[in-house]
Simulated assay, not measured.
Amino acid sequence: MYHPYFRGKQFELITVREMAPLLAQSNFVPIIEPVRESLGGLGRTLKAVCDANGRAIVIVNPHHGDHGDDGANISALLQGGFIGDDKISAGILLRSNTSFASARDCFEAHKGHNPTFVHSGFNEPKALAQYLGEDLTGSTHVFVSSPGDILYRRHFNGSTCILVQDGFERRKNADYADNSPEKFSELHVTYRDIGMAGFGDFLVVGDVYSEGGGPAYAVAIHLTYIDPDNDDVMFIYHFVSTTNDTPTDPAGKFKQALDKLIRKLDSGTSKLRETESIMEFRELHAKQHFPGLGYVKKLSMKHHIETLATYLG
């Protein structure tokens, strides 16, 4: 059903680990593209997923990060600890510079890990579909694209198809419309209407990848909600700090953004679900505690998953 797409940074992996029971219970399948050289955190995360009787897709040929040139260590991790476990699928990333031959070879090398094809700009869909032949109907394809790519997806009719879209518009924090919601996605409502078996997104992080941010001139808390008064469309709030002219005092800027979030929650008009993550934001406000920007991002991602789990449950 829901396939959240994570880049395997520390707090993304922690989010999957901590949410593993809910992800499994909700039949949500995270897609993880490892970006850090050390794979210890990934291994712990996949174990947590399996222990919760959940499923995950791990990209074995990442584009971003430390494994962009060689995913052999990721393949070795799967081979060493998760071989024969259909809970963990090897994701084969198909980009514009991926040849059919390399896609075929990657598939053959990972047949023991229930491969999933992740399409992101690939140019040889017909050749791949013909190669799969009778096995096409049993294959799974994740399309990181727009709903309009119908001709491309037609090659894979009869297979299990998932559409992933980026609903998060990446800007400088100071440039977000403060406390003013904007549309995030309607795919959770419409994915079946366009012939998909499931849908996904890049949560409240977005598809744009960066190795690490510099000092934050502004701090923003990004939180999604589903609006029952607007056809259940998902919207996103950006609660932005008031001070944004220097890269100092992130704790003070977090307090400014958090104050705005709590005021909106207490107004009774936010439409934000009172998830466990929202309860933790309330606790942080009560304690006047700044846990760090990575932790804040983790809470926002967890709230997004909790919101969709409640809606789809």
Score class of each variant (00 low, 15 high):
218 A>T: 01
69 D>K: 14
84 G>Y: 13
161 C>F: 11
43 G>Q: 15
148 G>D: 13
258 L>P: 02
206 G>I: 04
73 N>R: 15
107 F>P: 00
148 G>C: 00
31 I>W: 08
269 T>N: 12
237 Y>F: 14
12 E>H: 12
195 G>T: 12
227 D>K: 08
149 D>A: 11
154 R>D: 14
289 H>Q: 14
4 P>R: 09
67 H>E: 04
166 D>L: 00
309 A>C: 05
100 F>N: 06
90 A>Y: 08
237 Y>N: 07
19 M>I: 02
252 G>N: 05
292 G>K: 00
70 D>T: 07
122 F>M: 00
9 K>T: 02
20 A>V: 02
251 A>H: 11
36 R>F: 05
69 D>L: 14
33 E>G: 03
80 G>Y: 04
93 L>R: 09
213 G>I: 09
22 L>G: 09
287 K>D: 07
15 T>Q: 06
266 D>C: 07
242 T>Q: 15
42 L>S: 03
251 A>Q: 12
224 T>I: 14
262 I>W: 09
120 S>I: 05
146 S>M: 08
90 A>C: 11
266 D>S: 10
20 A>W: 04
256 Q>D: 08
45 T>V: 10
96 S>E: 15
30 P>D: 10
51 D>P: 05
48 A>F: 01
208 V>K: 13
24 A>G: 04
197 A>Q: 15
88 I>V: 14
268 G>F: 09
221 I>H: 03
196 M>S: 05
56 A>C: 01
174 A>R: 15
120 S>Q: 11
307 T>S: 08
80 G>R: 08
8 G>H: 08
206 G>K: 07
135 D>A: 15
59 I>V: 12
90 A>H: 09
184 F>V: 10
96 S>Y: 12
244 N>L: 07
289 H>R: 15
74 I>A: 06
32 I>R: 04
258 L>T: 03
2 Y>C: 01
290 F>D: 00
266 D>Q: 12
7 R>D: 04
102 S>T: 15
140 T>S: 12
305 I>A: 06
37 E>G: 08
125 P>K: 05
173 N>K: 07
309 A>D: 06
260 K>T: 01
166 D>T: 02
230 N>K: 14
139 S>M: 02
157 N>S: 14
188 H>E: 06
217 Y>M: 05
26 S>M: 03
146 S>Q: 09
6 F>Y: 07
303 H>Y: 10
42 L>H: 01
272 L>V: 01
224 T>G: 12
148 G>Y: 10
94 L>P: 09
288 Q>F: 08
76 A>T: 12
44 R>A: 08
97 N>S: 13
29 V>E: 08
161 C>H: 11
225 Y>T: 03
59 I>N: 00
185 S>F: 01
304 H>E: 01
282 R>P: 06
63 H>G: 13
32 I>C: 04
16 V>N: 03
25 Q>F: 07
247 P>W: 10
70 D>R: 11
91 G>Q: 04
